[in-house]
Design a protein around this nucleic acid. Sequence first.
DNA 1: GCCAACGTTGGC
DNA 2: GCCAACGTTGGC
Length: 151
Amino acid sequence: MNYWLMKSEPADVSIDDLAHRNTVGWYGVRNYQARNFMRDTQQVGDGVLFYHSSCEQVGIAGIARVASAPYPDPTQFDPTSKYFDPKSTPEKPRWQQVDVEFVRKTPLLSITQLRQYPPLAEMVVLQKGSRLSITPVTQQEWDFIQELLAC
DNA sequence: GCCAACGTTGGC
DNA sequence: GCCAACGTTGGC
């Protein structure tokens, strides 16, 4: 059992979208490190901090969980998709995704708030220059954030 | 829109 | 395999 922070642009898929649809395929990852986390390390049931990025209110917007094994991201084969990858084939797919299932929406924990808590100082997503869209979260960080949200 | 940081590409 | 050039991310 592991914990993760997964970035989504709310203009694309927000926590409210996830709440409505219950489960979404995490399509569009085009970074090998992030892909490898989904393909090699994530397991069904892993906890996910659902994070809104590239928007007005950047931060943790809800809780979710990993809900499937990895499978090929269909957008890589779709020439009309901005995630189309001409070098990928159905026989040898390059990009994988998992399904992510809604758990609950939370009050927004903004990135500036997150930076104020010393126990979160080492969070990967808060490190300078960190751009990975999927990052591991430690048990301690997860527990601390759950306590914050319980207040 | 800026720009730091990082990832990818491709010539050699 | 090196590395310069270029492209992308994402907070501000």
